[in-house]
Amino acid sequence: MSRRFLRKVINLVALGLSGLATAIGLFFLGAILWTLLSRGFAGMSAALFTAMTPPPGGSGGLLNAIYGSLAMTVIGILLGGPVGMLAGTYLAEYGRNARLSVVIRFVNDVLLSAPSIIVGLFVYELLVVRMGHFSALAGAVALAIIAIPVTVRTTEDMLNLVPQGMRDASTAMGAYPWRTITSVIYPAARSGIVTGLLLAIARISGETAPLLFTALNNQFWSTNLNAPMANLPVVIFQFALSPYPNWQQLAWSGALLITLSILILSITARLVVARLGPGGQR
């Protein structure tokens, strides 16, 4: 066999394998989504959104869990989003070349990839032990801590995309930096920042581990932020590991709900950037 032929064969085999690898990746994505859809869809009904989590064997829905997840996600992003945006603003504007910023960016990246169960333990020691009980507030704080690094990263990246010329023009008209940032740069980077927030929301709405020992769970309807509150991920965790068919069905439907909302959020984020442009250009 000539060497050239051998090289051609190796080339073909290697490229074929890479195609196979991609097919495998897509296959698993499809398999997981298919399982979610087929098993979760069976439980989809109006009752899912109007009834509470039932005792084993009874029929019910996920209303208290959906509400809990929504409430904690909203509070989490309200707490973490502004902090992340401000910190990102510092990194992109005030402290762009400061030595401190290098350290902060590095630490932020570490936090971004840190295991979320660590955050749960942190908030447990900080809040739950001090307050003496689990609470939805502690859960929201845990989610906020997870949202912060995501928001910092995206805000900084988006602000950096705004052309320097806009800053210079604003400064030339006599505006202080804060005015430049709030009146010129934020609006320009608006779509990018919104994307960042959407991505942060998508990230925290799927997190289970940090809620396990902060918000715990609650089988009833509760709107009390100072008490344990039901939430979708922990309910799915509990119900999926049980032997009751009605609970397992609710677990699959809940899982489908979470995945669909996250996918919709992620796709919306992409569309926002695609249509409006990250730096505000249309």
Binding site: G25, L29, I32, S205, G206, T208, I258, T259, I262, L263
Partner: peptide, 15 residues
């Protein structure tokens, strides 16, 4: 492939 990254980990667990 990126959507696979967006799927929450608990889904992988039950699957």
């Amino acid at each position: 492939i990126e959507l696979l990254a967006a799927v929450p980990s608990i889904i992988f667990g039950i699957w």
